Amino acid sequence: MRSLPLSCVLQLAVTIDQCGIDAVDLLVHVDGGDRPLAELPESKRWWFLQDRLVITGPLEVQLEHEYDVEVSMQLLLPYLSAGPGKAAVLPFHLRRRLRVGDGTHPGTFRDVS
């Protein structure tokens, strides 16, 4: 599997230093543009899994400062059965201590763990 519809990204949530970021404020940078997270369930666009899915939001951060960042989501795999008439859904939860400012994307965090 090399790509999935963006609508397969479910329940994406971001927490920074134990403060949840409101989902309505999150944007997903994919395919050369930013799209509101709320548009993903209805999106007809595809996500090539080799490409990084960049998530942005209205957060004031300090350059070179470290933050505890948690991202959780579910990934629907429509081609993989989890029982009769039921597609598989994989849960993901990642937590890292990250530093702002690696230069790959404005405001991007750099892994420091």
Score class of each variant (00 low, 15 high):
D22V: 11
V69A: 00
S43Y: 05
A82H: 09
L80Q: 06
L40D: 11
V28R: 07
A87R: 02
P58H: 07
L76S: 02
Y67P: 10
H65R: 14
W47A: 09
D51W: 08
F48E: 11
S7M: 07
Q74V: 01
V28G: 04
A82S: 13
L80C: 03
T15C: 02
F48K: 10
L49E: 14
V71F: 00
V61G: 04
D102F: 12
D25R: 14
L53S: 05
G33K: 12
Q50D: 15
G85M: 11
G103T: 03
H93P: 01
E66F: 00
G85F: 10
R97Q: 11
P78S: 15
L76Q: 02
W46C: 04
W47D: 09
D34V: 01
V71R: 00
S7K: 14
Y67S: 08
A82F: 07
R95C: 12
H29K: 04
D25P: 10
Y79C: 05
F92N: 01
R45D: 15
Q18D: 14
P78N: 13
Q62N: 04
R45T: 05
L63Y: 06
L59G: 03
Q74F: 03
L37Y: 07
C19A: 04
V89M: 11
T104M: 08
I16W: 02
R97S: 07
H93C: 13
E66D: 06
F92H: 08
L40H: 11
G32D: 03
M73R: 02
V69Y: 00
G33A: 15
G33W: 09
S7R: 15
L49D: 13
D34K: 08
A13D: 10
L37M: 09
D25Y: 10
L77H: 00
V28M: 09
L40G: 10
R35W: 10
L76K: 02
L90S: 11
